[in-house]
Design a protein around this nucleic acid. Sequence first.
DNA 1: GCCCTAAAGTGACTACGCTCATATTATGGT
DNA 2: ACCATAATATGAGCGTAGTCACTTTAGGGC
Lengths: 215, 215
Amino acid sequence: MRITARAKQQTRQRLLRTGARLFRKRGFAETTTREIADAAGIANGTLFNYFPTKESLALSLFAEALAAAEADHASRSAPASPEEDLYAYIMAGLHRLEPYRHFVGEVFTTVMSPFARAGACPEAEEMRRTHLERVLEILRAHRAVEATSDDRDLLVRLHLYWTVYLGVVAFWSRDESPDHTDTLVVLDQSLRLFLGSLPCCSPDSSLHREEVSRD
Amino acid sequence: MRITARAKQQTRQRLLRTGARLFRKRGFAETTTREIADAAGIANGTLFNYFPTKESLALSLFAEALAAAEADHASRSAPASPEEDLYAYIMAGLHRLEPYRHFVGEVFTTVMSPFARAGACPEAEEMRRTHLERVLEILRAHRAVEATSDDRDLLVRLHLYWTVYLGVVAFWSRDESPDHTDTLVVLDQSLRLFLGSLPCCSPDSSLHREEVSRD
DNA sequence: GCCCTAAAGTGACTACGCTCATATTATGGT
DNA sequence: ACCATAATATGAGCGTAGTCACTTTAGGGC
């Protein structure tokens, strides 16, 4: 069973790497599951023993990237303000997703959008949960939300956060400005928007500022 | 040619009405284009002479509804504040979309999400453009944005608006609270959030209020 | 009335993601 | 060694949205 288990992991990795390569080269929609399976040297049906859907394969790539980003972010000293902290966290994620940027939107559309049916893709649920939990941690660490705020309140706030976050990712995924500087502006504005909506966040850190210049 | 043109319109209408009936009865994904074509008494291929995609058929239904909402909104006296005006506009739209509520999300996911490829569905582009133009009109009428604000600034603001709007629609499409009262709360919060982010919007109308009770 | 052309309709066909009954292979107990 | 059983791999097959080469039909010019 040990050898088999390792072989299984290798096959899984081969599928992930092959998928990444083909998706990057030809795009998500334009790459068929048959091509991936062929290139990975397995039968078409076998692919679905490893990933229940085509989207799930792509999402696993993103999950890998975001896990790395999670580590990146954890290993730097926490900035002073919740805005900067969230900014760093989100940028770390986008940075790691860079190789997949041109098809991230395509996959998120189907599976991560607030419209997507809950439970349709457990992998996506998991990713969202992880992200939101980390955001909540950050907010709590900076006392931007009360530890005691009730669930209904949190739900609405996180709905807003998620909406705003998806908007940023969407913008980024199409942003062709050099070094994605436009994305930095949108992200900064979006975060101020969101943080400004939190009752106990210091009001001076949000709104009414003109422009941003950040590293 | 006149008679033919009218016949074509009739077929188009028959497809729309048949589609609406079947989508409402069995859901969007569960209804096949063949079923619609059969029920409308035409061949499967013919359906695609009228609507390039299945989503496009559904979007045409939504466009009808939203055009009616546009009229509803135009025929009432404009409220005093931009918040109330936008609130009325959006609610008019949601009210007219009510019959399609349980599959609006499914279609928007594919086609209206900020991730959706620009130009992939011209019908969707058109709907977004119409909506955003009306919003801009409303904002300008209330001097919530300067008439002179530059394009880049407007682009970012409208991106934020659209993101927030989609979040509201997403919430509404799943909101099972009686009379969608939860949606009213989210909409109000979202609008205050968005309007609060506009530099020249009166600050007293936004944020820091506790709860809302609205008709 | 009768062509001629363009518009509209048709359905067999394709490519796709995904399923499932079956075949193959690995492992642990004896 | 050998079998029994479970894990894994397989590819023909399914149902779908959408296409396209072809047929049918409508309407205006004569």
